[in-house]
Design a binder for these strands. Sequence first.
DNA 1: ATTCAATATCTACACGTGTAGAGATGTCAA
DNA 2: TTGACATCTCTACACGTGTAGATATTGAAT
Lengths: 143, 143
Amino acid sequence: MTLVITMSTPQPELTESEWAIIKAVWEHQPCAAPSVQEALVASRGWTYSTVRTLMDRMVAKGLLTAEKIRHLTLYRAAVSRRQAQLGELRYALRHAFDGALKPMVETLLTAETLSAADLDELEALIVARRKSQAGRPARKANP
Amino acid sequence: MTLVITMSTPQPELTESEWAIIKAVWEHQPCAAPSVQEALVASRGWTYSTVRTLMDRMVAKGLLTAEKIRHLTLYRAAVSRRQAQLGELRYALRHAFDGALKPMVETLLTAETLSAADLDELEALIVARRKSQAGRPARKANP
DNA sequence: ATTCAATATCTACACGTGTAGAGATGTCAA
DNA sequence: TTGACATCTCTACACGTGTAGATATTGAAT
């Protein structure tokens, strides 16, 4: 239930446009294309055709599912927000950090956009993590 | 010298192919296209033409620089490894986490691929970070 | 000078992505 | 049953990316 970077569920990388669409779908699903278009026209200026094309291509890719009820097509996300997040993370990890997680986290921590409270929470997380791993076999530092 | 996620230096996102090329360039620069091709033919199977096209397009994009000495073209990276790393991270941060750094770090920490030693180092980093921020004005948790 | 090997240039093509118009079709109200 | 409106389908196009062949040019060795 934990795990993550190496599981078998799909962890796709999304384009900017796909992110916009799938976020709207996550928020409104199940939903029809016109709703998504309305939700996005302000920020992206997309017409119905554009949104529809994008969505259908995403169905073809397995990012969304489409269910046709009479003449209305209902869309749902086929990947969870978490899966999509992991996909993006995995991409950065693989290419920018050659798979080494620690340097990646280091870089993020050094980004100095974290408040003292954030730092506290993250430290707590590390402590918790260490605890839960206490009994386990050791593993290589930078796989 | 700290900073990062919000600086003005270019932080491009790279495609998989571009990552392969620029890594080779970082390692061999200044270097000619044939060297890069040799370095990559094993892993990617690319011909000289392919590598050359990719590299010239990267020059056009500002990822590499090319200097022509007589009939030989010498390439160099125009962005540092760090900049490229930040570009990738920024992309994930913006789209997958809506700019909220803490959830992103949390996700990474929960990835359970970190050894006890890694966790120690990261905690030390957090402690250091907190110290260096002690006197500063508070800032929003999730910008 | 002639040729060989290295390097470079040009051109091309298929596929993905962003973008959307035009026209078809289904639905509901009068 | 006839519109008016909502929704869908089809088709298209430009631009980016991955991939590379064919051809030219150059520098060096003979």
